[in-house]
Amino acid sequence: MDLSTKIYIAGHKGMVGSAVWRALTKQGYTNLIGKTSKELDLRNQQAVTDFYAIERPDVVIDAAAKVGGILANNDYPYQFLMENMQIQNNLIDGAYQAGINKFIFLGSSCIYPKFAPQPLKEEYLLTDSLEPTNEWYAIAKITGVKACQAIRKQFGKDYVSLMPTNLYGFFDNFDLQTSHVLPAMIRKFHEAKLNGNTPVTLWGSGTPMREFLFVDDMAEAVVYALENILPEHLYNVGSGTDVTIKELAETIQKAVGHQGEILWDATKPDGTPRKLMDVSKMKEVGWQFSTELNEGIAKTYEWFLENIESFKQVKI
């Protein structure tokens, strides 16, 4: 891959897209393209078609999506299904129609069945029913994976899908109504610390197990997929290790310095009991994670503190 290769990063202002941009810049890539949602509405097929015709990128990295946690997925099922399908369909088909030979599609571990054997292997896709609280987002992402697979199978193009585990890090969403579990905990413990170490109430029982990956590690996996031709269409990207939500809470509490009580609201849903990725296929092709959870949480909390006034989704 030439360092002057023209690379379009869809969703370059988001947590994942901005990490990919940083990683590519660090590697010396000089011809990166990014458009904000105001500049380019990815839900608009004609707008995306016109963008490809004008810019003519060599590679597309799709880090654009409508995302959120259990609450947001439950409250806005239609938007999570339809908008994600519109975004990815326009990007994938537009890239194929424009003759773009390399496309990296980013999805989520929620594409796998709720009660699939652990750890989750790529071949478990479509073998059973999904987790109901986020099936709308999952179904959209599954269609993206299958679209890239179909283009790869039928036309021989290098379209590959990377499925990250739960990501966190710089530019995460800390809005308590729409955020994922880790950034929500960071904010809750921080606010409780400021309020005199008041108790923190968290959803569920604390027993589900989750795997987390620092977003800059995910970006390195994207760079690896960019610079290499991977032999298969679908790869899990994660750490290959997991912790209970209770252990996660205690790790974040320690990093933040909160000294109050943790309370668990068992009336709230736990979601999938366990989601651990089998990352052996990525290891086999030569990539593995490098940032341990303690280090990643410490870096994320430091970033949270540095950006607490300017980051639009942190309103404390």
Rank of each mutant, 00 (worst) to 15 (best):
A184M: 04
A184P: 00
A184H: 00
M185T: 03
R187P: 00
R187F: 00
K188Y: 00
K188I: 00
K188L: 10
F189I: 03
F189A: 05
E191D: 14
K193C: 02
K193E: 06
L194G: 00
L194P: 00
G196D: 11
G196I: 08
T198Y: 06
P199I: 05
P199D: 08
P199S: 08
V200N: 04
T201C: 06
W203E: 14
W203G: 13
G204T: 08
G204A: 09
G204P: 09
G206D: 08
G206I: 05
G206C: 04
T207L: 13
T207N: 13
T207Q: 14
P208M: 07
P208N: 09
M209I: 06
M209P: 00
R210D: 06
R210V: 10
R210Q: 12
R210I: 13
E211W: 07
F212Q: 07
F212G: 05
F212H: 13
L213Y: 06
L213H: 05
F214N: 03
F214V: 04
V215R: 03
D216R: 03
D217C: 04
D217M: 06
M218E: 11
M218C: 13
A219Q: 08
A219V: 11
A219F: 09
E220S: 15
E220M: 14
E220Y: 06
A221L: 12
A221W: 11
A221M: 11
V222P: 03
V223I: 14
V223Y: 01
Y224P: 02
Y224T: 02
Y224N: 03
L226V: 06
L226N: 06
E227T: 11
E227H: 04
N228W: 07
I229V: 13
I229E: 12
L230F: 10
P231M: 08
P231C: 09
E232K: 14
E232H: 14
E232D: 15
H233I: 14
L234C: 12
L234R: 12
L234D: 11
V237W: 11
V237K: 09
G238K: 12
S239R: 14
S239E: 10
G240D: 13
G240M: 14
G240V: 13
T241K: 15
T241N: 15
T241P: 04
T241A: 14
D242C: 15
D242Y: 12
D242E: 14
D242I: 07
I245Q: 11
I245S: 01
I245V: 15
I245C: 05
I245Y: 05
K246A: 11
K246E: 12
E247A: 11
E247M: 02
E247W: 01
L248Y: 02
L248E: 05
A249E: 04
A249F: 04
E250R: 07
E250M: 06
E250P: 01
E250H: 08
T251W: 00
T251E: 10
T251F: 02
T251I: 15
I252R: 03
A255V: 08
A255K: 05
V256R: 02
G257N: 01
H258M: 01
Q259P: 00
G260Y: 02
G260H: 02
E261Y: 02
E261H: 09
E261F: 03
I262L: 09
L263N: 15
L263T: 13
L263P: 02
